[in-house]
Design a protein around this nucleic acid. Sequence first.
DNA 1: CCCGTCCGGATTGTGTAACAATCTTCGGGT
DNA 2: ACCCGAAGATTGTTACACAATCCGGACGGG
Lengths: 207, 207
Amino acid sequence: MTRSTGADRLADELRDRVLSGVLAPGTPLREELIAAEQGLSRHTVRRALERLVAERLLVSEPFRGVRVTSFSDDDVTALQQLRGALESEAVRLLRAEHAEAWPADVLDPLRAAVRRLEHGGPVEESHAAFHRLLVSSAGSARITEAYERLDAEMLLFLRQLRFHYDPHTLCVEHDAYLADVQLRGEPAVREHLAHATTVLLRARATR
Amino acid sequence: MTRSTGADRLADELRDRVLSGVLAPGTPLREELIAAEQGLSRHTVRRALERLVAERLLVSEPFRGVRVTSFSDDDVTALQQLRGALESEAVRLLRAEHAEAWPADVLDPLRAAVRRLEHGGPVEESHAAFHRLLVSSAGSARITEAYERLDAEMLLFLRQLRFHYDPHTLCVEHDAYLADVQLRGEPAVREHLAHATTVLLRARATR
DNA sequence: CCCGTCCGGATTGTGTAACAATCTTCGGGT
DNA sequence: ACCCGAAGATTGTTACACAATCCGGACGGG
C-alpha cells in the first residue's frame, strides 16, 4: 500500500546519490539528463529537485539550474550553531525530565549507539545516528525533525570533505560525552560541538 | 532586477493570502481554481503550493490535495519548544558576546521594536518583528532563518485563533522581557514562551 | 434501518510536446 | 585586448491528455 508517488521515490533516489558524496560540490544536476536516465518527465524531476533544494542539499538559481550545495567555513559554523541550539535544548529537556539519573529505556539505546560506533556500519552514519537518537530522546517532535534535516546537511559536508573519523577514538569520545551530558548538560553539548567544528574546519584547511 | 519567476510570485501571493488568516484551517486549495484565477498553468500552481507545503503553511496528502495547516495543541507546544531552543540560544550568544551591558546598536532597535507594539501597525506583526529582531541580533544566520520560518507558522496559528493581544499589556510585558533577558538570559526566554503558550492554549480551549 | 459495494464525478499525479525566457559560449569586428 | 551579437543550451511555463486515486451517493442484501 505505497501511497508514495514517483516524485517521492525520485527525491529519495537523488538524495541518496547526493549524500553518497560521489558528486562534488557545485556539480549541476540537469533536468533533461535525469529525466532520460530515470524514465520520468521533466516536470516530475523538477518536483523532486525542488524538494532537495528545500532540504538544502541542492541550491537553485533561476534559469541556471540546481547544483550540489557547497559549504563555506561560515556555513559550517552557522550550521553547527543551529545544531548546538537544538541538541543543547534537547539535553536540557532530558535533564529536566529525569532529575536524578536517566532511566534505562533512555540510556540503553544510547549506550548501544555508542558501541555501534566501533562495530556497526559506516562510522559517519553511526555517529549521526547517535546524535539523532540523543536529540529524539527528548521527545520534542519539531526539535527532532529540525535536527534530522541538519544531520543530512552535515553528512553531505563530511562526505564532500572525505573526512574519516577513527572509529575507536570516536567511540571513546562519545562514551565520555554521554556521561558528561548527563552530568553537566548544555555546556557539554557546546564543547563537544565546538570541538567537532574546529576539527572539521582544520581538516579542510590542510588540504 | 528581479530574477523572480512566476512561481515565486504566486508562492508569495498565496503565502500572503494564507497568512492573512481569512482561510480557515483545513480549507483545501484547488489547483485548477487557482490556475484559472491567476492565469497560470496547473504545473506552476503546483510548484508554488509545494513550496508552501515545505514551509508548513499548507499540508499535502497524496491524491487529496493541499489544505491550510491546522494546529493541534501538541503542534503548538512542539512549535514553541523549537522556538524556545532557538530564541534561548540566540540570547545566550548575545550575552556571551556582550559580557557587561548590551551596546546601543543592539539595544536601541530592540527598544524601538518594543515601542512599536503600542504605536505601530498590526500588533501581531510588531510582536513577531520584535522577537525576530531579538533572535537575529545574535548574528547566527541559520538560527535566524529557522526562527523566521517558525514565526510565519506562529502567525498563521494566531490568525486562525483570531487571538488579539492587547497592545499596551504586550508593550509592558516585552519591556520587562527585554530587561529580564539581559539580566537572567535563557530562563527568562523559557518563562516568556511558556507564558505565551499557556495563554494561547487557554484562549483556544475557551471557545 | 443499517451496511457493504459499486459507480461516476472530481481532483491529483504524470506524460508529451512545444515555446518563451534566460544564461552561456564563441567568434567577428574594432 | 575589448565589446557585441548570434547560436546553442538550459530552465520556466503552457496546453492538452490520460491514468491513478479519492469521494459521495445510488443500489441492493441483510
